[in-house]
């Protein structure tokens, strides 16, 4: 993994920094935050080498901050549940498109959120956090494929005989499982507001239970989980701003 990440940097950069950079990467388990940060660092090194920054002009750079993950968490909390309710309640089928688009935006934001907010959690619960990122990423692909399939034909076979709805529901469950794992890691590390993590956990479990046996209103679970993600996002941005305000 480390050798692969190093290969992404320009050769000139590697000649100068590769040894010490590899030593830093070997010091602790790499989480999704670290990998994303290294990918952005490699992109920055390529852009820098090509002289896209000038001494007089504004320099653009990339820094994987809590802000990106926090903003993505807020957007997910705001749009995904609304999209789900909108798409579920809309008839005929062609009116489901706006809701489905909101859900797709939300799904992408969830992957960005768990990646951006996972730095401290990954250092103590590396496997948990990788699962919390990979599950929503795979779930998003399935949910998007299933969602597009449902717009065309909800009950028709889409994938290995499963209907579009089945694929979408599988993706949804993977996303919820990722949220649950991320909430557990956050609760245990106390890296972000633990009450927000508890809301994400309870909301996601509530959605899963309501989907299986329906004793809990689905809307309540959606609302609680969304509120939890928005709270986590606001908390991350607040923590980031305290440092940024001092440093800039």
């Amino acid at each position: 993994m480390i050798a692969l990440l190093l290969r992404l940097y320009p050769a000139a950069w590697r000649r100068r920094y590769a040894d010490e950079f590899a030593a830093v990467l070997e010091e602790r388990p790499l989480g999704p935050f670290d990998v994303a940060d290294v990918l952005l660092g490699a992109l920055d090194a390529h852009l820098h080498r090509r002289g896209l920054w000038t001494e007089s002009g504004p320099r653009k750079g990339f820094a994987m901050t809590l802000r990106i993950g926090g903003l993505a968490a807020i957007v997910f909390g705001l749009v995904w549940a609304i999209g789900l309710v909108w798409a579920s309640a809309s008839e005929p089928r062609d009116q489901k498109l706006p809701g489905s688009l909101l859900m797709i935006i939300g799904q992408v934001c969830l992957v960005l959120a768990v990646t951006g907010l996972s730095a401290f959690q990954a250092r103590r619960h590396g496997r948990l956090i990788w699962a919390a990122v990979i599950l929503p990423a795979v779930g998003s692909v399935l949910a998007i494929a299933g969602g597009i399939g449902m717009l065309r034909s909800p009950d028709g076979p889409l994938w290995f005989g499963d209907s579009a709805w089945d694929v979408w529901a599988l993706g949804l469950m993977a996303m919820l499982a990722g949220s649950i794992l991320f909430a557990i890691a956050t609760w245990r590390t106390k890296a972000l507001e633990t009450r927000a993590a508890a809301l994400v956990l309870l909301g996601a479990i509530g959605i899963v239970i309501s989907a299986m046996i329906s004793p809990i209103p689905l809307l309540l679970g959606l609302g609680v989980m969304s509120l939890g993600w928005i709270w986590l996002g606001i908390d991350a941005i607040r923590r980031d701003r305290v440092v940024a305000a001092v440093a800039s």
Binding site: A36, D37, F62, A63, L66, R239
Partner: peptide, 19 residues
């Protein structure tokens, strides 16, 4: 930096800034 600020500093950001 992480101990002093409570904020993660990614390795990519660290070396971009160091350079």
């Amino acid at each position: 930096v992480e101990a002093g600020t409570g904020k993660p500093l990614g390795p990519g950001t660290l070396y971009a800034a160091l350079a």
